[in-house]
Every structure is written in structure tokens, then in C-alpha cells.
Design a protein around this nucleic acid. Structure first.
Lengths: 341, 341
DNA sequence: TTGTACGCGTTATCAG
DNA sequence: CTGATAACGCGTACAA
């Protein structure tokens, strides 16, 4: 591939002038600029960003680290981030971790070696993440997405997971549900799942109900029929399920229907995230809606602010409860508990 | 950030030796190697990939260009690609185009400037893609994913879209359906949608039935109720719908149910892609299953082969029909047409 | 406005 | 086994 020197020669100018024509066009007379562009065209010259990056000590690349792209929450967020990054002239380097702390550090290390200008990342568990300790030692602009801002060192963009799940659970209680269970994926792995469980517990306590142990699935996004069934039988059968994410909730609804339960007639199901698909299926999923695209946009804008040296603070975005069609009053005449506000 | 020269100085060796200790450890005596590692540790040295890239003329970065990440088909594929790339020591630079040809060329141009070692891309329409013309002029290793290999210049990894949709439509016909419609997103944009429509037409013709005009939606993944309704009424009301992708199919099912139609009792729906969610919902989606992860894996492996200089040919992967629960015999006593094999 | 000259951090080629 | 040195392609003081 031709380099800028050949272009300069063909245009009959010095290397410096040719370089300027690309990096700082104002600084060169229009007529010579045209000659340079023509020569460049003719030779099929294309600026070498690697060389530029080395010289300017800035890559205009942003590193993005995510648990997985198989969950629409993250791929939507990535899509939003990509849009604003590209519009601002940044490229994205993307890597996934599958909630594995070791992979998190490996990925981050790689991003650092690539000399990305900043990173936007979602870690499995911000409290015990070796990767964040690594990051804390570096001066690299960074924004955590989704993770609670427990570690006050980092800029975070998130919603209040605990409060959101509290609200979801209260919603069920107000409809008369008393035996409400929560299902989640591998629990210890995700700090968000933990916060959501706390929100659930808090709501149960508020209503003077027993917070049940978490119904833990092997997979983050799929319900195992066998693990669910015990909770559906007998006197203490659940009348409602809160799920730690929408994919789990949709999977739960499908599983329940296949087991012969009608949703929401026999059992109510509520999700968390607000993925687009939840609205399209029937029954439409009742869920906590996180502003996924806004999260991505806000994260990218904060990050670009940091890179520009602007003072940035953590942001907490609003969530909402979408009613959908997967929730109704409990089936049996379940006398309302005294203590509902 | 410290560079390798400082490490060398601290270790009391030359820059060359220090560099060797990292790139080719065998070539340096164990004792001095240890001194170098110690110095490196102490200074917090981290290899600068940008400099390495400039020197070696190889970035070990692969560019990935996709229409969107909002469709699980692409995000799953990306996830698979990321896994194999990372395992092989490649990083991924990702950009989306939203089916816009101009954005396609802009994105590709940027990837070229970044000097990626290869690209894996899915374009909206391979036949009329300025971006592919651009690519054809470069010597860059490239693999097209999903796109038909019409342009024989390129290595392609795909399934036979036409044949797949033919099979889906025949499946409906064999169950007794005669009035079958096909719904798709913005049609001209996607070469795959066009091939799928051809498959549908071919199947209708084979059964001596009228191929109906495409029912075109404004969005690639969402059904507009108003555009659908005219096809559901009167004597010629459709008894089955084939959809150009799964999101559209799920959306169609939701819409139909909300309009009071039962799926599959009143109307059958069949999708295309085989996204995971299709299996989880109820009724489970009947669909053509593309091996999404395999597509991603095969594409990446082919690309890495190309980069390594190995001879690679296009690959066509197998699809299958998943029966699901969203398809049944047509509701009315619809006399079977004579001509079903 | 244009040209000269240096450096960004590595790796590769040669000698020693 | 180790060291000196020249690239890689570009941006930018500084001088003209």
C-alpha cells in the first residue's frame, strides 16, 4: 500500500505538506491541496491509522467489554454505543467475558495493550472483580454500565436495580399475590441479580410475607422445568414469579404453558429489562423497563466526556413498569393480607 | 506509560534483548530473562500493540460489519465470531450499517484505514453494493456471511435461503394450506429477503397456487397490524403466513392473537432463522433453523485461513425445519389441491 | 504557505 | 546469547 511520501512526490510537494493536507487541510493552499488529493486518488492512498495512532498517542478506539451478546439487553446497548461512537469518529473494539472474572482481566489487559482511548464495561460482579482493581491502577477513562456504583472510584451508568425489583414485587402484592417466588440464573455471578433479589426480599418483608429462597437456574436465560415444578404444586404453590431478566421470564411463560398452566390466569410472571420482544409476544410481558438505548448512549457520552477531560459524574437512569399482559390477580380467593398500603 | 527501553535500562540490557524476552523468550538466557521480567513488573510495563502493529504490518484485528445488532441472528453470530477470534489471538472491531449502502462503504473504508488483517461482513444487497466493489479492489482477506455468493469473487458462508423458504412453504402446503402469504421487512434492502421470496413463489408455483405479492412491513422486525389485517378477511383470507425472519414471525403471532386469532388454530405462522427465543415462547415457533453459531464459526475460521494464506472455498451450511407449535392444518375444510407430491 | 527533521515504541537484521 | 541500528508511516515543532 502506498504511503504518504509517494503521494507527496507525485504531487511535487514535501512529505509534510502532503500529511497536512489530510490531518489539517486548512493549513495548506487550496491549489496544492487539490494536487495532493489527485495524486492520492491516483495512487489509491489510504491514511494509515496505525502510524497516526503511534504518533499522536491516541487511537480513537473505544474498548467495550460485555458479559455476552446473546442477551438482547447487551446487544441493544452495544448497538446504541456503536451509533454514538461512530458518529463521533470512534471505532469500537468489542470483547465478551461470559461472566468469567478471569476472562474479564484478560480482555481488559488486551484492550490496554491496544491502547484504546477509553473503555465501557459491564462486569459480572463489581465488588469482587480483579479486573476493576487492574483498571483502578491505570489512568484510562472508564465507564461502568449496569454495575452498581459500589466502588466509588468509577463512573457508572445504571438504574436502581433493587428499587426496580422492589417495585415489581410490590405490584404483584397489590394485586393480591402472597406467594411470590423469584427465579434467576447463576446467582453469585451477577451483582445485578443480587441487588434484584434484595429488592424482592425487601418488598416481601414490607408486606410481612416470607421472602422465599431464590429459584436458581443453571443458565442465565433459560428455565429448567424440573427446578421450577416443585414450586408449582401443593398448598404453597406460587401464584406469581418475578424473574431476574426478560429472557428468563419468557422462557418461564413458555415452560408454564407447556406444563398446562395459563399465564396470567393461573400464574403471573414478571420480567426485568424491557427487551423489545417482550412486547411482541402474547401475552405481552409485564416487566421492568430499563432504557437500554439510553444506557448505551449515556455511557458513551460520559466516556467521551472523560476522554475530553471534562468532569463527569455517575448517572442513574429512570426505569418504569410496563404492565403487559402476563400479570393478573391470583387465581384462588386469596384473602388479602392486612398490610398492603 | 513506560516503554521497553526503560525496562531494558533497568534490567541492564539492550532494548533488543528486552524485546526478545517478550517476543521470543527462548532466545535469551534464563537469568537475564528473569531480570527483564522483574524490571518490567516493577515499571508496570505493557507492550504497545500499536507500535508492534506498525512494525510488523499486521494488526491481528479483524473487522466485522453487520447490518444491526438488534436482531439476535446477527448478535449470536457476532458472539460466535468473537469467541473463535479471541481464542486465536485476534481482536474484533465492530461496526453496524443499518442496511445503508453508504454506511457500508464508510465503515469499510474506516476498517481499511485501521489496517485490519481481514473483514467478515454481511451487506444488505451483495449485487448492488458499492462497498463490495471497493473491497474487490483491495487485497484484503474477506468473508461474506449470509450473502448469496452471486459475486463469485468473494468467499461466502451462508445457507441456501431460497431452498429453505421453498421447504417451509411446501411444509404448509402439505398440511393443506393453499392461501399462504409472505411477510417481510423493507424488501429491496435485503438480498436474503428477495431469495426467500423467490423460494416462496417457487413453492406456490409447484403446487399450482397463486404466489401472492409480498406483504411488506415498514420495519425489519415488527409487524404493522394495519398492513396485515386486509389479508385476514373475506373469502380469500390467508390460512398461513411465512415470515422472512423470526422476529417478524413472533411479532406476527402476537399481533394475530391480539386481533383475536388463535395460532395455529385459525392461522399458521412460520419463521426463518431459528433464534433461541422461538423455542421458549408458546406456541413455540415453527421455523427454518439456520446454524447461527456455526455460521459465525465457519466464517471466522475461513477468514483466518485466508489470512494464513490457505486456499479457502465458499461454504454452504445446512438448515433444518423445526416443527414447533405455531403451524397446524388449515381451519376450514380446505379440499386438498390435487398436485401435492 | 511550505520544508526539514525528529520521534512515537516495536521488531528485524546484522554483527559481535 | 547479546547489542547497535534501521525501518514501519505519520504528525508537528521549528525554521525558512
Amino acid at each position: 500500500m502506498t504511503d504518504i511520501l509517494s503521494v507527496a512526490r507525485l504531487a511535487g510537494v514535501s512529505r509534510a505538506t502532503a500529511a497536512r493536507a489530510f490531518s489539517d487541510p486548512e493549513k495548506v493552499r487550496a491549489s496544492t491541496r487539490e494536487k495532493i488529493y489527485a495524486a492520492s486518488e491516483q495512487l489509491g492512498f489510504r491514511p494509515n491509522y496505525v502510524a497516526r495512532q503511534l504518533r499522536t498517542q491516541s487511537t480513537r478506539i473505544i474498548g467495550v467489554m460485555l458479559p455476552t451478546l446473546s442477551n438482547p439487553v447487551f446487544s441493544e446497548q452495544l448497538q446504541a454505543m456503536e451509533n454514538v461512537a461512530r458518529a463521533a469518529g470512534y471505532a469500537l473494539m468489542v470483547a465478551t467475558t461470559d461472566y468469567d472474572p478471569e476472562r474479564e482481566t484478560a480482555v481488559l489487559e488486551n484492550l490496554l495493550r491496544q491502547r484504546v482511548d477509553g473503555v465501557a464495561l459491564t462486569v459480572a460482579d463489581a465488588e469482587h472483580s480483579p479486573c476493576l482493581q487492574l483498571l483502578a491502577q491505570e489512568a484510562l477513562p472508564a465507564v461502568l454500565v449496569h454495575n452498581p456504583s459500589a466502588s466509588a472510584h468509577f463512573i457508572t451508568v445504571s438504574v436502581d436495580n433493587q428499587k426496580a425489583m422492589y417495585k415489581a414485587t410490590r405490584h404483584l402484592q397489590k394485586l393480591g399475590h402472597r406467594r411470590i417466588g423469584m427465579v434467576a440464573g447463576p446467582f453469585q455471578q451477577s451483582d445485578r441479580a443480587q441487588l434484584r433479589y434484595q429488592g424482592y426480599c425487601q418488598a416481601m418483608q414490607k408486606a410481612k410475607l416470607d421472602a422465599l429462597p431464590l429459584i436458581e437456574m443453571a443458565h442465565h436465560t433459560r428455565v429448567d422445568s424440573e427446578r421450577l415444578q416443585p414450586w408449582l404444586q401443593g398448598d404453597a404453590a406460587l401464584t406469581a414469579l418475578v424473574c431476574s431478566n426478560d429472557l428468563l421470564a419468557l422462557s418461564a411463560i413458555g415452560t408454564l404453558q407447556r406444563l398446562g398452566y395459563k399465564v396470567p390466569k393461573h400464574i403471573s410472571v414478571i420480567g426485568f429489562d424491557g427487551i423489545a420482544l417482550g412486547e411482541m409476544v402474547s401475552p405481552a410481558l409485564c416487566t421492568i423497563v430499563q432504557p437500554q438505548r439510553e444506557l448505551g448512549i449515556a455511557a458513551m457520552e460520559s466516556l467521551m466526556g472523560l476522554i475530553a477531560g471534562i468532569d463527569i459524574t455517575s448517572r442513574r437512569l429512570d426505569f418504569s413498569l410496563r404492565k403487559g399482559e402476563s400479570v393478573a390477580r391470583p387465581p384462588l380467593i386469596d384473602k388479602l393480607p392486612g398490610n398492603l398500603s
